[in-house]
C-alpha cells in the first residue's frame, strides 16, 4: 500500500524516494466514500510523483480536478494506486541524507540506529 509508504513519510526527509524491486498488485475492496474522504488529506503532488516513479501514474492527473468526487473513474484510479499497488521489496531513500530504509516482505523498516538518533 502506498498510503503511508510515501505520502506522509514517517521518517527524516520528505518526500522519500522509492526504489522498488518487486511490486505486487493485490485486489482490495473498492470503497468510493472512503477514497473521496481521504483525497483532501493527501499531498497530491507527492503521491503523483511517487506513483510515477514506480510506473503507476497511468491516467492519474497531475492535479486534482474540482468535483473529483463525482468522477468514479478517477476515484477508482486513486483506489488502485493507494491501496492495491504494494511494494514488496525495495527501499525508501531519504532525499537529504541518502539513507536507505529497506522494504522487506512489504514492511518498510524505519528504525534509526542509536547513532542516528541524536
Amino acid at each position: 500500500m502506498l498510503t503511508s509508504k510515501c505520502l506522509r513519510g514517517v521518517v527524516t526527509g520528505y518526500p522519500l524516494a522509492i526504489n522498488a524491486t518487486i511490486i505486487n498488485i493485490t485486489e482490495v475492496d473498492y470503497n468510493p466514500e472512503f477514497i473521496t474522504r481521504i483525497i483532501p488529506k493527501l499531498d497530491w503532488e507527492v503521491l503523483w510523483r511517487a506513483a510515477d516513479s514506480i510506473g503507476h501514474s497511468d491516467g492519474l492527473p497531475q492535479t486534482i480536478e474540482p468535483k473529483f468526487e463525482e468522477n468514479n473513474e478517477f476515484l477508482k484510479k486513486v483506489h488502485r494506486v493507494l491501496l492495491e499497488v504494494d511494494i514488496e521489496e525495495g527501499n525508501l531513500v531519504c532525499p537529504e541524507s541518502g539513507r536507505r530504509f529497506p522494504i522487506s516482505k512489504g514492511i518498510p523498516n524505519m528504525l534509526l540506529t542509536e547513532a542516528e538518533v541524536q
Binding site: M1, S4, V10, T26, I107, P108, N109
Partner: peptide, 22 residues
C-alpha cells in the same frame, strides 16, 4: 484481510508528527 499497511518504526519518534491529525 487486505487493507492493513505495516510499518516498522518507533511510535514515539518525532517523525511520527508528519502524520499529525491524519
Amino acid at each position: 484481510v487486505d487493507n492493513i499497511d505495516i510499518i516498522q518504526c518507533n511510535f514515539l519518534c518525532p517523525e511520527m508528527y508528519r502524520c499529525e491529525n491524519y
